[in-house]
Design a protein around this nucleic acid. Structure first.
Lengths: 209, 209
DNA sequence: GTCTATAGGGGGATAGAC
DNA sequence: GTCTATCCCCCTATAGAC
């Protein structure tokens, strides 16, 4: 375990150090506002090394964007395609996993949304997200429920939007929310953990009031 | 009506033209990614005029940010403080107004969120949003309902988060959503209009399942 | 591979003519 | 008030020493 080279990341090669630094800074500030100097400084390395390993700021950004997006969507894919869990279990798993994930990396939603917005076409081509959702076990389970009249005519796309909104929106709105309500970091986190149980309930009430 | 000078905007003074152009470009691309040259071009005017009227890119951005934020929060304030409407009516009014508003200006949520994120302290000082929510008629009506046991112990902050998420999240997620589901502009807009009636229902189910 | 030094270009801001 | 021309800094990228 100590000997076998780790399959990914966390090795201390210069390349990985730069990538980690780039990830951090890009996630925080987005493409336009980050300077390559910020990344070099964050990495504790010289600016010239970025170009040596990654050719340009843009290439480096593309790599980070792809990995971030893939990572994010993969979590969704794994849960959505699980043959051995019920519809309800999937919702609970999704809420729990993503809330834990986003609690550690709250900048990711805004980063992804901005990246896609600035480059919608490249996004569509790189990751087969369409299939990830519309051909998932989750989606099929929803349609089956609907056919068995266990659902009071709810548009599945509205449901999907709300489900993802329940999970993601608080992290996006966090800075404003904390300002408006006077909530502090810890309270916010408590609320997010509360939502792991609340979201499945809300979704249930939504499809079967 | 034609003679009385309009109280605000839409006059064709150079200053207003620049501001409108700045609003458009800043909303679309954010601070870091817009060049003052973009704004000048959008306005059909010379670059030097921006500095003549607004001193610097940063000052111009501050003005746009303040006005955008004020405008957005004001809509919320008006609805939340209405003494003559019920709790349920307020939710419906909020959904309808904001969905119409955001349908015309879908870039605003992301703009505001990014602006606040990059400058949280200046945000808190400029607009008394805290009072706007926590001392609103809306909030009081919620607490009264809660005391009369018309609500099955729902955290008001969770409700607030969900209500705003129902309205705002779709517009933030729009580029990704359209990609993932293959939805087109018109379908998306139909879904948003559908939500004007759905949101009050969802909220109702949330506090009284 | 890693550094220092610098080229090269872009973008915010201003001088000065009209 | 509005324009053209230009300054000058900052940032990305690269050349070249070690």
């Amino acid at each position: 375990m100590a000997k076998g080279r780790p399959k990914k990341e966390l090795d201390s090669s210069t390349e990985s150090i730069i990538k980690e630094a780039a990830r951090k800074v890009f996630h925080q500030k987005g493409y336009a506002a980050t300077r390559t100097r910020d990344i070099a400084e964050e990495a504790g390395l010289n600016l010239a090394l970025l170009n040596y390993y990654f050719k340009s700021k843009e290439k480096l950004f593309e790599i980070i964007t792809f990995e971030t997006l893939f990572n994010f969507m993969n979590t969704l894919g794994i849960v959505f395609h699980d043959e051995n869990s019920s519809f309800e279990e999937k919702i609970e798993a999704l809420a729990t996993r993503y809330i834990d994930f986003l609690s550690n990396e709250p900048d990711i939603p805004l980063f992804i949304i901005s990246a896609v917005r600035n480059n919608p076409e490249s996004f569509a081509n790189k990751i087969p997200i369409k299939n990830m959702v519309l051909q998932s076990v989750f989606y099929k389970q929803f349609l089956e429920k609907s056919e068995r009249n266990e659902i009071t005519d709810t548009n599945p796309l509205q449901l999907l939007l709300n489900l993802m909104g329940f999970i993601i929106f608080p992290f996006i709105a966090k800075p404003i929310f904390e300002n408006v309500t006077g909530t502090k970091e810890k309270q916010f986190q408590d609320m997010m953990n509360e939502r792991k149980a609340l979201i499945p309930m809300w979704v249930k009430n939504m499809i079967r009031p």
